[in-house]
Amino acid sequence: MNIVQVLVNSLITSAELGLIAIGLSMTFSILRFANFAHVESAVLGAYLVYLFNVTLGWNFALSILVSTLILGTVGLALHRFIFRRFANSGDITPMIASLGLAITIRHGIQAIWGPQHVVYDYEVLPGNKIFGAFITDPQIWILITAVSAMVGFHCLLQYTRIGTAMRATAANVDLAQACSIDTQKVILLVWFIGTGFAALGGILIGWDTQVDPYLGFNLVIPIFCVVLIGGVGSVYGAIIGSLIVGFAQNFGLAFNYAPLINLFGLLDLGDRFDLPAAYKPAITYMAVVLILLIRPTGIIRKEVS
């Protein structure tokens, strides 16, 4: 087994999950409900880039920029017309509303663009070879974006006034309001950044793989797993969660468990014990069970201050 390739694969998987998980974790902590439509915004963003880039023939970078901004605005509209009215309805009602919204967006996309996948105007090439492993340009961009997002969100939350306001709102809305923080403004900003950033994630994943209507549907559960493993509201948590899931998925499959099963030489039950690929999705769920049983609020505990 080419261990460098497994390492690179793990990093790419982690970055792809992390891209969407960071935004979801932040919005989750401030909006206080599980937004199932978050991932569908990612798919909508990816399809808008297809519209601009392929159908209308725009420049790829420009398409990404416009699509991200449009989705940010869509986020504002969703808040204004749908989710604002759930301010006092607890967390379950908006969650089910977001489920309805997710169904609507997903199938609306299929009604417009059809069930077949689409790809961007981009020539797929064999990856660049680094230390014997292949990594492609889109994958490098995904890594760069994920790292910059991590740094960017960290700086935003720690070193800016609005970031302080966001953290305060996440910790306690009433207290934040009492400290004359305009929580409405904070929530609008969170919708804009969160949805726009989800779109960017969807676009990059679509660029690296393909865009189809079920892109989000197949990602939504792993991404929620990542967010809750890491701890809601923590940027580092989302990063750590996606690293755990990404590495576990790739190394879990690559690893030969024979030494472990044979108790390091005590038994001789055979020399190959691999995890069947059919159990790959189980790795994520095992990680959730193990980690939450040990740390019930995720790896990074939310600071309540």
Binding site: T13, E16, T209, Y214, F217, N250, A254, P276, A277
Partner: peptide, 19 residues
């Protein structure tokens, strides 16, 4: 290798398949 339908990341399966 039995893969999950609709997944977006088959690199782990493919790496192992080729190895």
């Amino acid at each position: 290798m039995l893969y999950q339908v609709g997944a977006k990341d088959f690199r782990a399966e493919l790496t192992k398949l080729l190895a």
